[in-house]
Deep mutational scan, measured.
Amino acid sequence: SIKEIEKEEIIKVLKEVNFNKKLASEILGIPLRTLYKRLKEYGI
């Protein structure tokens, strides 16, 4: 599903940037606030 793909992509990017959420949100092209929402939604 799209949610699974998105979750995997978020985890992959977070690992690449050593869990720097600000940098991860910039790489993913989403606002930091949205990233936090996704992390909560996906239980990351």
Rank of each mutant, 00 (worst) to 15 (best):
G43T: 05
N18T: 04
G43R: 05
S1E: 14
N18G: 12
I44L: 11
E9N: 15
S25I: 03
K7D: 07
K22R: 13
R33L: 14
N18Y: 08
E16R: 12
A24Y: 01
I2Y: 05
G29C: 04
L14S: 01
N18S: 10
V17W: 04
I27V: 12
K12E: 06
L39E: 02
S1M: 08
L39Q: 02
L35V: 02
E8L: 14
N20S: 07
Y42K: 02
K37W: 08
Y42W: 14
Y36M: 15
I5S: 14
E41L: 07
E16F: 12
K15E: 09
L23K: 12
K22H: 11
L28T: 02
E9D: 10
L35A: 00
Y36W: 09
A24T: 06
L39A: 02
K7P: 06
V17I: 05
K22D: 06
K3I: 11
E8P: 04
R33E: 15
K21E: 06
E16T: 11
L39Y: 02
K37I: 11
L35S: 00
K40E: 15
N18I: 03
I2M: 13
Y36A: 11
I2A: 13
G29S: 06
V13M: 05
N20K: 04
L14R: 00
I11V: 10
R38N: 07
L32G: 02
L32H: 02
K3L: 11
K40Q: 13
L35Q: 00
Y42L: 15
K21V: 14
P31K: 08
E16Y: 11
L28R: 00
G43A: 08
Y42M: 13
E8S: 12
E9I: 14
I2W: 11
K40T: 09
L28N: 00
E4A: 08
I10C: 02
E8G: 10
E4N: 10
E41K: 08
K37N: 11
I27G: 02
I5N: 14
L39I: 14
E6T: 13
K22E: 09
E16G: 11
L28V: 02
L14K: 00
E26F: 11
S1K: 02
K12H: 08
L14G: 00
I27Y: 07
F19W: 15
L32R: 03
V17D: 00
R33Q: 14
G29E: 06
L28F: 03
L14M: 13
K21D: 04
N20M: 04
G29A: 07
S1N: 14
P31L: 04
I27H: 06
S25A: 15
L14E: 00
I11D: 03
T34C: 03
I44D: 04
L39F: 04
N18Q: 10
K12D: 04
L39D: 00
E26G: 08
K37P: 02
E16I: 11
L14A: 01
V17Y: 06
A24I: 02
K3N: 14
I10N: 01
V13R: 03
E8C: 07
E9R: 15
L32Q: 04
A24E: 00
K3F: 10
E4Y: 08
G43V: 05
K7E: 05
L32K: 03
K7N: 06
K40P: 02
R33I: 11
T34L: 13
Y42F: 13
I44P: 04
V13Y: 02
V13L: 09
I30A: 01
K21I: 14
V17N: 09
I27Q: 08
E4P: 09
K21T: 13
L23V: 09
I11L: 14
K3R: 12
K22W: 10
G29L: 05
L28I: 05
E16N: 10
K3S: 13
R38E: 05
N20L: 03
A24F: 01
Y42H: 08
I11E: 08
K7A: 08
E41W: 06
P31D: 14
K21H: 14
E16Q: 15
L23F: 07
F19D: 06
L39T: 02
K37V: 09
I2T: 14
L35C: 01
T34N: 07
T34D: 15
R33K: 15
I27T: 06
Y42T: 04
K15G: 08
F19M: 08
P31Y: 02
I44S: 05
I27D: 01
E26R: 10
G43H: 09
R33S: 14
I30K: 01
E41G: 05
P31N: 09
L23D: 05
F19V: 01
E4V: 11
L35G: 00
E4I: 09
K37D: 15
S25Y: 01
V13E: 01
R38W: 15
K40W: 12
K7Q: 07
E8T: 10
G43N: 11
S25N: 01
E16W: 09
R38P: 01
I30T: 02
E6P: 09
I2L: 14
I30M: 12
K3T: 12
G29K: 09
G43M: 08
K12T: 08
Y36V: 15
I5C: 04
L14H: 01
K7H: 06
E26W: 08
G43F: 07
Y42D: 04
L28D: 00
R38V: 15
E16P: 01
E41N: 05
T34P: 02
I11M: 13
E9Q: 15
N20W: 04
K12G: 07
E9M: 15
L32V: 07
L39P: 00
L35N: 00
N20P: 01
L28E: 00
K15N: 12
L32N: 02
K12A: 12
P31G: 08
K15Y: 10
R38G: 03
T34S: 09
I27S: 05
P31A: 10
E16A: 14
I5Q: 15
T34I: 13
A24D: 00
E6K: 09
K7V: 09
L28P: 00
F19E: 03
F19S: 05
L35P: 00
I10A: 03
K21A: 12
G43K: 07
L32S: 03
A24V: 05
V17K: 03
A24H: 00
E6S: 13
K40L: 12
L28K: 00
S25T: 04
K40H: 14
L32W: 05
E4K: 08
G43S: 07
K40C: 04
G43C: 05
K22F: 10
K37G: 06
R33M: 11
N20G: 02
K12R: 15
E9H: 14
I30Y: 04
K3D: 12
K37L: 13
I44V: 08
Y36Q: 13
L23N: 05
E6R: 09
G29N: 10
E4W: 06
E6I: 08
I2G: 13
E41D: 09
I5T: 14
N20A: 04
E8R: 13
K12N: 09
I11P: 01
S25D: 00
G29V: 03
K22A: 10
N18L: 08
K15M: 12
I5D: 12
I44N: 05
E4R: 06
K21F: 12
K12Q: 11
K7G: 06
E26Q: 14
K15V: 11
N20H: 07
K21M: 12
G43I: 05
I27A: 08
I30P: 00
I10M: 11
I2R: 03
L32M: 08
G43L: 07
K21Y: 15
G29P: 01
G43Y: 06
K3M: 12
E16C: 03
I30N: 00
E8N: 13
E6W: 07
R38A: 14
P31F: 03
K12W: 07
S1L: 09
E6M: 11
V13C: 04
I5G: 12
I11C: 03
E9G: 10
A24C: 04
I2D: 15
Y42E: 06
N18E: 08
F19A: 04
R38F: 15
E26Y: 10
R38H: 14
L23A: 12
I2S: 14
I11T: 07
T34V: 14
E6N: 11
F19T: 02
F19Q: 07
E6G: 11
L14D: 00
Y36P: 01
K7W: 08
K15D: 05
Y36L: 15
E4M: 06
K21W: 09
R33W: 12
K37H: 10
L39R: 01
E26S: 11
Y42R: 01
K40R: 13
Y36N: 15
V13A: 09
V17A: 11
L28Q: 01
E16K: 12
E8W: 13
E41A: 08
E8H: 12
I10E: 01
N18D: 10
I11K: 07
Y42G: 03
I10W: 03
K22Q: 13
E8D: 12
V13T: 09
R33F: 10
P31Q: 06
I10Y: 05
E9T: 14
I44H: 06
L28C: 02
E41C: 03
K15F: 12
V13H: 02
K22P: 08
I2Q: 14
K21P: 11
E16V: 09
R33P: 09
R38C: 04
S25G: 06
I11A: 06
K22I: 13
T34F: 06
I44C: 03
K21R: 10
S25H: 03
L32F: 04
K21G: 08
A24M: 03
V13P: 00
P31M: 04
R33G: 12
L32I: 10
K3W: 13
G29R: 07
R38M: 15
K21N: 08
